[in-house]
Nucleic acid binder design. Structure first.
Lengths: 190, 190
DNA sequence: GTCTATAGATGGATAGAC
DNA sequence: GTCTATCCATCTATAGAC
């Protein structure tokens, strides 16, 4: 059985709270109560409230990017790379629903330096989609179009699955990711 | 020239503040300062802070729905109705960027009763998209698929244009709405 | 309709004991 | 590593004068 780590506990209850009530509406006191400790004890593990948020956002971004990289490894065909990227992105946004929703609505809770770090990671990730899409257009497998606009459109659609996805619904995460991949591939192909 | 109405001023500066800093991070004091009055004067126009948020969200939802209705009026062909709905929804989410972004991230600021009212309006609006999409599938002009999933996918994609759209970018709002309509129509057609 | 003044609660964060 | 106690800033909202 895994060692109970208080820092992880704080992080996990914070994910729940930020997801349910939002970052600003969740107090240090709320977090402490959920973690079963006094609020001052939080500061032994994290230097301040923003630090918890930053930890959550950074971890989510790192995991998202590494999932993409490992899924894409070895795939050569551009069409298949695009399909895989969309499938992977959509699946992640259902599996890690709470964290990605926090990522998308609580960025304003970060001070400038931390904000820049997350935005840079996100831009780098986005450019991977853009480059696959552009390559497909150059190769003639995808219809010529504004690749930045389409890339934004596709990524935001697949990101937003986290907003409406219901874990207790009828369709599996994998089936929904499949529908999303098919939908977008059909739209971009020549 | 239009009469300067303090209630409207409060509403407008609140839209700016909620958009920039978020609802919980914006204080009554911030709003008062931006409106050029003392914070106690806010309470002459609105009974509390949530009332301002609710006013913003309700107005946005009413306007969104009435835009759709007037655009759809007289259009018979299902494919054209779908195209118009997508175009209209996307355009609105660029024209009213701030308000719709608040709508999508600050719903948690509402108490239960107000929350229910907004969600009900939103569901009713969503069902209009679902019904057009389903009709197209029944008629055989759209490919058979899970119409609820696809409807969610399309609506959230077009809603999310508000996240990345840059008013100072090269493409016009109308051009982007056109790209979005074309993209989605291509994806759903048989 | 806007002001000054303030109540009353809660926020993030720190000091220092154990 | 967690506790009690507390500081001080800020928050929403109200009372009552003008």
């Amino acid at each position: 059985m895994p060692k109970t780590n208080m820092k992880d506990t704080i992080k996990n209850v914070s994910i729940d709270l930020f997801y349910k009530k939002g970052y600003f509406a969740s107090s240090i006191n709320d977090i402490a109560r959920a973690a079963g400790i006094q609020k001052s004890s939080i500061y032994y593990h994290y230097s301040n409230k923003e630090d918890i948020l930053f930890d959550i956002l950074k971890t989510a971004m790192i995991d998202l990017d590494s999932k993409l990289e490992s899924r894409l490894a070895g795939i050569k065909k551009t069409e298949e790379r695009m399909r895989t990227a969309i499938y992977c992105h959509t699946l992640f946004h259902m599996r890690r629903q709470k964290e990605v929703l926090i990522s998308d609505s609580e960025l304003r809770g970060l001070t400038v330096d931390n904000y820049k770090i997350i935005i840079e990671m996100r831009d780098k990730y986005d450019r991977k989609f853009q480059s696959i899409l552009k390559k497909g257009m150059d190769e003639g497998v995808f219809a010529e179009n504004n690749y930045k606009i389409l890339s934004n459109a596709i990524i935001t659609m697949c990101t937003a699955v986290s907003i409406w996805f219901n874990p207790h619904g009828q369709l599996s995460k994998e089936k929904i990711a499949q529908i999303y991949a098919d939908f977008n591939l059909k739209a971009i192909k020549v």
